[in-house]
Simulated assay, not measured.
Amino acid sequence: MHTRTIGPFTVSALGLGCMSMSWGYGAADDATSERLLQEALDAGYTFLDTAAMYGMGHNESLIGRALGHRRGEFTLASKCGIARGEDGNLSVNGRPEVLRRTCEQSLRNLQTEVIDLYYLHRLDPQVPVEESVGVLARLVDEGKVRSIGLSEVSSETLRRAHAVHPITAVQSEYSLWARTPERRMLATCRELGVGFVPFSPLGRGFLTGRAQDITHLEEGDIRTNVCRPRFEPDNFATNQRLLQPFGEIAAEQGCSMAQMALAWVLEREEGTLVPIPGTKHPEYMRENAAAGNIRLDAAVVARLDGLINDRTVKGERYNAQLMASIDSEKD
């Protein structure tokens, strides 16, 4: 797999999102996940993405257990800022003491002395971003974190954070069917020299052609609740009509739909983005890795742009409550 740069790091053009091995898309098997992680490094992945909230420490512990002895072979990203409160419920919490405590626990779980890229997972509306980034900057000074990132923030928040401490990367959902970063964030990242890391570049499985509507998804799958709107039966039926022409274009290119969706992301922003498709299936990990070798010409990219975009897809990407809580662009 060819490489790209994110701040000071040289990483594989495709990273590996690790969330689904612990949380989000139904049950996963630890033995299979540990094998997948080993095989991912062997396949050329050198950028792994996790978070404290993925299984409430389970995902980080899984990575530490499986890859602690190979720590020097990959760039490690994790996230803080979503914590379990005294009532047992998860909530956004950007208070400095909570972020520091989360980091200390993550280092233990990951069996590492330093996290390469540490994101603020979500902006806490009760805590100025300057305070949250300030404690992350102190963690950098202490050698516990190498660089700082932000996840799902607006351009205004990025600018405020960047004024406190250089931000290495912003992570947000971006794919053919999730184009919000094109409104402003991608341009702001270019201006400030900040890397951009698309998560869910396969549209939460939709762009693979394998996803089903919520009536067929297993318990614990986030597409049945927080990511529900586009997988509601009526919306899904409308969206699914896009897949036949999408599949025909993939066949013309001699690749799978998943590979073409990833190749589209890899072409954006003059080839500077590092998408992090996630999976708990070793065979899909290998399939995704091959997307790095696919090149789409301008005419194919234009056809894909016109076929699947914010205007042709029906439904919001999150439920109303979560959409309201995201630090989004003001216009």
Rank of each mutant, 00 (worst) to 15 (best):
T312R: 04
V313E: 03
K330E: 15
T5D: 06
D49F: 00
D116C: 00
L262Q: 08
I249V: 14
G203M: 02
G44R: 00
G72L: 02
G278E: 01
E39W: 01
P245E: 09
F74G: 01
G64N: 02
G220W: 12
D49R: 00
F47M: 00
M1T: 09
A251L: 08
F206E: 10
Y118M: 04
M19P: 06
Q253K: 14
E34L: 03
D124E: 07
L243C: 10
S22L: 13
P198Q: 12
G292E: 09
I167D: 02
T224V: 03
L99I: 15
R286K: 15
D87S: 14
E60W: 02
N309L: 06
L76W: 03
A187M: 09
F47D: 00
V194S: 01
R295K: 12
P277F: 05
N235E: 07
G64Y: 02
G15L: 00
K79Y: 04
V145L: 08
Y118I: 01
N235K: 09
S33G: 02
A290Q: 15
R286Y: 10
V129I: 15
R223A: 09
M56E: 13
C255M: 07
Q321F: 11
T112L: 02
W23D: 14
G134A: 08
G85F: 05
E86I: 09
T10R: 12
Q240R: 15
S22G: 15
A237W: 05
G134V: 10
Q321D: 14
E252W: 02
A169M: 05
P229H: 14
N319W: 05
E152F: 04
S154N: 05
Y284K: 11
T279D: 04
R223G: 12
L217Y: 03
H216Q: 14
C18F: 09
R4D: 04
G306Y: 07
D141N: 13
L262N: 12
C80H: 07
P277T: 04
V129R: 09
L110K: 11
L186G: 01
W177P: 03
L243G: 11
L296K: 13
T112V: 10
C255L: 06
V197Y: 00
L37F: 02
P229A: 15
I167N: 02
M56R: 13
N293K: 08
L48R: 00
D221V: 05
A298P: 02
V135Y: 11
E60S: 01
A250P: 04
H2G: 06
S33L: 01
P125K: 10
G44W: 00
L139W: 14
E287K: 07
P275F: 09
H69C: 02
G72N: 09
R204D: 08
Q212N: 05
S91F: 05
Y25L: 08
I115H: 03
H121W: 11
R138Q: 14
R184G: 03
E219P: 03
F199C: 11
P8H: 03
A187D: 15
D327P: 01
T46V: 00
D310T: 06
D305T: 10
G315Q: 01
N59F: 01
R35Y: 09
R101D: 15
P201M: 02
D310R: 08
K314Q: 10
S33A: 07
E130D: 12
P166Y: 12
G26S: 04
